[in-house]
Amino acid sequence: MLDRIQASLPSLAPAEQRVAKLCLADPRAFAKLPVTELADRAHVSKPTVVRFCRSVGYDGLSDFKLKLAGTVNEGVPFIHRSVDADDKTGDVMVKVIDNTVAAFLKYRNEASNAAIERAVLALVAAYKSGKQIQFFGVGNSGIVAQDAQHKFFRLGINTTAYSDGHMQVMSASILGPGDCVIVISNSGRTRDLMDACDIARKNGATTIVITASGSPLASAGHIHLSADHPEGFDRYSPMVSRLLHLMIIDILATCVALRIGGGKLQPLLQEMKNNLRSKRYA
Rank of each mutant, 00 (worst) to 15 (best):
M1Q: 05
L2A: 09
L2Q: 13
I5G: 03
I5K: 02
Q6N: 10
Q6D: 11
S11Y: 06
A15V: 13
V19I: 10
A20G: 13
D26P: 09
R28Q: 15
F30D: 02
L33H: 09
T36L: 15
L38R: 08
R41N: 15
A42T: 14
K46H: 12
P47R: 02
T48R: 03
T48H: 07
F52Y: 04
S55A: 15
V56N: 03
G57W: 00
D59I: 08
S62N: 13
A69V: 04
V72I: 14
V72G: 08
V72C: 08
V76G: 01
V76E: 00
P77M: 06
F78R: 06
F78Q: 05
S82C: 09
V83G: 01
V83D: 01
D87A: 00
T89R: 05
D91W: 00
D91S: 03
M93H: 11
K95A: 00
K95R: 12
V96I: 10
I97Y: 07
T100Y: 01
T100F: 00
V101S: 05
L105A: 04
K106A: 10
R108Q: 14
R108N: 11
N113L: 11
N113P: 11
R118A: 15
A119I: 06
V120A: 07
L121E: 14
L123N: 05
A125Y: 07
A125W: 09
A126Q: 08
I133A: 03
I133W: 01
Q134L: 14
F136W: 03
V138I: 14
N140M: 07
G142L: 05
Q149M: 10
H150I: 13
K151P: 03
K151V: 08
K151L: 13
F153R: 11
Y162Q: 06
D164V: 03
M167G: 07
M167D: 08
M167T: 05
M167V: 02
M167K: 03
V169L: 13
M170V: 11
M170L: 12
M170E: 12
S171P: 02
I174D: 14
L175S: 08
D179S: 09
G188P: 07
G188E: 06
R189L: 04
R189H: 10
T190L: 02
D192M: 03
D192P: 09
L193E: 01
L193F: 00
M194C: 12
A196P: 06
D198I: 07
A200N: 05
K202T: 14
K202L: 14
T207C: 08
I208C: 06
I208E: 04
A212L: 09
G214H: 04
H222V: 06
I223R: 02
S226A: 14
G232S: 14
G232H: 07
Y236Q: 13
R242Q: 11
L243P: 06
L244G: 03
L244E: 05
L244A: 10
L246T: 06
I248D: 00
I251F: 01
I251P: 04
V256A: 02
A257F: 05
R259A: 13
I260Q: 07
G261T: 01
K264F: 14
L265G: 01
P267R: 07
Q270I: 09
Q270C: 10
E271R: 11
N275D: 14
L276R: 15
K279Q: 12
K279R: 10
Y281R: 09
A282S: 14
